[in-house]
């Protein structure tokens, strides 16, 4: 892999026209991600961008790096396989709140505790957009605009930060699609963090959640140092409104990578089945 320092954010776009609605927050995430790729100053072929299913999971086709657009909910499992097989690659998983926290919820918590050196961009709009507007795991219980749950869901939303901390995440940042430069900085920091790093992006769905246009007034950046223990972070963000942006948590746990030795040939191992072995 030759280092090619002259790549710009534009070089990391594929030119394929996104299926997203005008005004979708995911455009800004694409911009931030390609800026981050350029900032990381690595060749295109050193990245693998893995996603599941949903509006935001369409992201890989819009970039010019290696990608895999797989099954609903399974991005983190695929990304784990890529990284464990090829530790030399920079592996980023991306997807939405339904993909990551509902159908893929089990992989979310195990990715946190396994702590493989991955970056996970979780684009949260509190709605299923691709299926035209149903409640997601992060939707408030009294949201009544879905024909599936006309009385509201009546169940509590998941708080990605708290779930991740309780599951053993190594790095957690929150960004806002409306601030792509800051988001690019958070993605770069997450990629450089050795271990499982989540970038939780508040990415408005202007089609099914038009009220999210107001998020730009709700977000507030923290200038405090990131917490470095889950206990500290949980206490600090116990009453967090969900709109605090910045790097909220980072520990220095070593990333998980199974040991590799190459001391034996398969033929030598086969001989163990022989008599007298």
């Amino acid at each position: 892999m030759d280092v090619c320092p002259s790549l710009t954010a534009q070089d990391f776009k594929s030119g394929v026209k996104p299926i997203w609605c005008p005004g979708c927050g995911d455009y800004s995430v694409l911009t931030a991600l390609t800026k981050a790729f350029a900032e990381l100053n690595q060749p295109r072929e050193s990245f693998a961008l893995i996603s599941g299913i949903g509006c935001s999971s369409r992201l890989p086709a819009y970039t010019s790096v290696y990608g895999l657009h797989g099954l609903h909910g399974r991005a983190l499992a695929v990304a784990t396989g890529v990284k464990l097989a090829r530790p030399d690659l920079t592996v980023i998983a991306a997807g939405g709140d339904g993909d990551g926290l509902s159908i893929g919820g089990n992989h979310f918590l195990h990715a946190c505790r396994r702590n493989v050196d991955l970056t996970y961009i979780l684009m949260d709009n509190q709605v299923y957009g691709m299926t035209k507007g149903q409640a997601s795991p992060t939707t408030d219980p009294d949201w009544r605009d879905s024909k599936l749950t006309p009385e509201g869901t009546g169940i509590s939303p998941v708080a990605p930060l708290h779930l991740a901390l309780a599951s053993g995440v190594s790095f957690f940042a929150r960004g806002f699609a409306g601030n792509p430069n800051e988001l690019a900085r958070l993605i770069v920091a997450a990629v450089r963090h050795p271990g499982f790093a989540i970038v939780h992006v508040l990415s408005p769905c202007v089609t099914f959640r038009p009220e999210q246009r107001e998020w730009k007034n709700a977000v507030h950046q923290t200038d405090a140092e990131p917490s470095d223990t889950p206990e500290h972070a949980l206490a600090r963000f116990a009453t967090d409104d969900g709109f605090t942006t910045g790097i909220l948590f980072a520990d220095n746990r070593p990333a998980f990578m199974p040991p590799r030795h190459e001391r034996m040939s398969p033929a030598a191992i086969a001989r163990r089945f022989g008599t007298g072995a």
Binding site: A77, V78, P258
Partner: peptide, 27 residues
Amino acid sequence: AETGGVLVQAEDELAAINMTIGASFAG
């Protein structure tokens, strides 16, 4: 482990096969 490979105990069979898809994608 003795031949330069990796075995991962996955959280479920959905993860198991998707991990193998990722590793195969990676070559």
